Amino acid sequence: MKDEHNKDRENDENLYKAFLKETKQEFTSTYSLSEDEQRKIVKDGRNTARITNIMISLAILLLILPIMTLFTYMYYGFGGKANNLIDVAAKTIYVTEPNMSLEEIEIEDDIGFFSMRLLFDVYKRIGKEDYKAGDYDIYFALDKPSFPKKNYFLERPLVEIPSVETETLLHPKALIPFNPQEEWNMLNGLPDGSVAEVYVSLSDLMEPDDLKKIMPAETELRWFAVNTGMEEGQTDKEGVPITPIGYPAQIDTTTWSPFNGREQSNEEVFMDILALLEKNEDVAEKVARAKSLEIKDRRAYLRENGIQIYGAVITGPTPELRKLEQIKEIRAMKVGEVKLWNWK
């Protein structure tokens, strides 16, 4: 009995092993993969992993970009930093560019990642009309400006890199780097039916009101070049050329202009602007043509000595401007922009 039981048990085990072997062979033949199929599975897995990594990276970037943008807006918005940079750039133009103005309401600011761009147009008054003189594009990396990209639409723009030899407004004791008679001849050769802009240099320092009294009736003073104690030498202590600083001679009735005459005289506004530029001189020197402004020393001189002028920008009908040659207080003249008659 026992032998028969063991024999049956052995037969059952053999049958089970045969079943397992047959099942394994059937499974292998049914589900085994070729080498190409295995490669395809590995490749698909690799692509899936790559796509997953890309999606995760994009998700992280999509989270970071809004945070960076928010930080940039907070940086420029906190404490009015953006408005201060705009204010400094605009007011630098008024006091360093003769007979130049801008419409501050039209200044565009474009805030990017940790940066801001200012875009604005500048204008010149020639005769009775304001003409677009050019446009500025200033890039700020946080609060550090780059040199502006300037595009001028003028026939006789002032040089971009000033020097003693290219100056148009000159202190009474400074050498004249051009032939004054040639400039008078040029003015005399312009058509009577035109208006022009001229830069005049005086024989002596004068009070602004005294210059106004001797101007031909049908002309308009546009900008005063102010003596700050450095114009005779025309360079700073290191020998870097400086250019005139000054202020508009006329009240600007546009509400956004700092020289609108509502609360302060133009002279007072000029001094306030110099105080602002002294605190932001690195920005002002990038915006201005002159790369040395020496605002601190010039402000100190003006506080001690008051405002006197040594030159001015004048506009009007060409026949009226020719009368300037007979005014003994005018030492030299240089012709600026010329337009067709618009004197009303």
Rank of each mutant, 00 (worst) to 15 (best):
N260C: 03
P317N: 04
E129D: 15
V164S: 10
L277P: 02
G127W: 00
T168R: 03
N179P: 11
D192L: 09
N99A: 10
D12C: 13
D3L: 14
W184E: 10
L324W: 03
M230I: 13
D137R: 08
E232Q: 11
I161T: 15
Y75W: 06
P177Q: 01
I307Q: 11
K91W: 05
N53H: 06
Y247I: 10
T168M: 05
E37I: 00
N84G: 06
V283I: 15
G189H: 06
A332P: 01
L293C: 08
A49V: 04
I126W: 10
L102S: 08
G127I: 07
E294K: 07
R125S: 09
E167I: 08
Y123I: 03
D8H: 15
K213V: 11
L202N: 02
N14S: 10
F153K: 13
N11K: 13
M215W: 00
E104S: 08
V240A: 08
K43W: 12
P98E: 03
W341T: 07
E197A: 05
K7F: 14
T243L: 11
I56L: 14
V287D: 02
G77F: 04
L63F: 15
R222T: 14
F153L: 14
N11M: 10
I242D: 00
G261H: 14
I273Q: 05
M68Q: 04
I314E: 02
